[in-house]
Design a protein around this nucleic acid. Structure first.
Lengths: 185, 185
DNA sequence: TATTGTTATACTCTATAACTATA
DNA sequence: TATAGTTATAGAGTATAACAATA
């Protein structure tokens, strides 16, 4: 009824389906492992892992959120949950009293350590076991490439506005600032 | 503290992280598009798409579930939701009165058609745009391989039991039967 | 008894909007 | 006014267990 619908080649379709299936199964398995072994959701694991890597084991809420893709309130929710379990602490930043500094505790590191082996094993056996070294290298290159592309082109609506019917976007300013893939998007 | 922890090579790590990030961002973008354009969750889209491909546009609940990885109740929930919106119908099978046959409706196909272009475009621009044809082919091969591997080796606990501390599970029977990667696992 | 599916229920997660406080 | 974070709240999704009906 309008512009030619975009198409995927047979190879692209196959790649997309298989990619989707793999990531879905892998994610599912990993989530189960994290939950079974460490009572952690995937997001919580990511947060802990980030903190574990961060210098000083701590980060501001905003920086933590960056990349974990959730809403601010979602991060607060998870951080609270982790704090209640004693895996992280939260304290106002001395430098900027508006900020909250989240820091991983020893207990947090323990959980991380407890969970890691199984996590890695799962990834190894599920994702890498059936790939050659060359494949893994190619995969790393491709995914890094795509990932960079995604970071550079923050997916907007990802399916452009429906029929706008009205003005083709007079920039109401405000939005723009979101610059680097902030929390929500 | 026990057996040598498994390790990932630097390349594997990079591949895993990038893979994870890509699949996460892609999934997020696709979910947004499906929701914006067709008020569909990803699962609902998958169900509709399956039905759309199925001969006669219909399938048994059990067969539908197979591969979508959710619990039976979860499928019932989604099927109900789709039925309420008139996108599918549900009726007992004539052959086996225990079974429920789910069939996509014309309205269901319309939604599918409405959602498809944006979906494909998103996949194209987010996943494939930065890859060469050769890359796509390699990706398809790898993912198909891994996917086959995963289907062959249904991820069990994916992270062996913790220290049981108590009774190591006296099998209350019942459970075992789940045989072929059924719904739940 | 085993299988198919639904219901009841509880819980986790996410998102929006309103709000507080600092800058 | 803009930024950082929290709270209140509502809604979607998932899982478990109990259940009903058919095979």
């Amino acid at each position: 009824m309008s512009t030619q619908p975009p198409r995927l080649s047979a190879t692209e379709l196959a790649a997309y389906f298989a990619f989707t299936e793999v990531s879905s199964l892998l994610r599912h398995a990993v989530e189960k492992q994290l939950k079974d072994v460490g009572q952690l959701s995937y997001v919580q694991f990511q947060l802990l892992a980030r903190l574990g890597d961060a210098p000083g084991g701590s980060q501001r809420m905003t920086d933590l959120a960056d990349g974990v893709v959730y809403s601010r309130s979602g991060l607060t929710y998870q951080a609270q949950s982790l704090e209640e379990r004693g895996l992280v602490t939260r304290a106002p930043s001395p430098e900027d009293e508006r900020s909250t500094i989240v820091a991983i505790t020893a207990a947090g590191r323990e959980v991380l350590a407890k969970v890691f082996p199984g996590h890695i094993e799962a990834v190894k056996s599920l994702l890498f076991e059936s790939l050659t070294d060359a494949d893994v290298e190619a995969l790393a290159r491709m995914m890094t490439q795509v990932s960079g592309h995604l970071r550079a082109n923050p997916p907007r609506s990802a399916g452009r506005r429906k029929a706008p019917t009205s003005a083709p976007a007079s920039p109401s300013a405000s939005r723009a600032s979101s610059a680097r893939g902030s929390v929500t998007d």
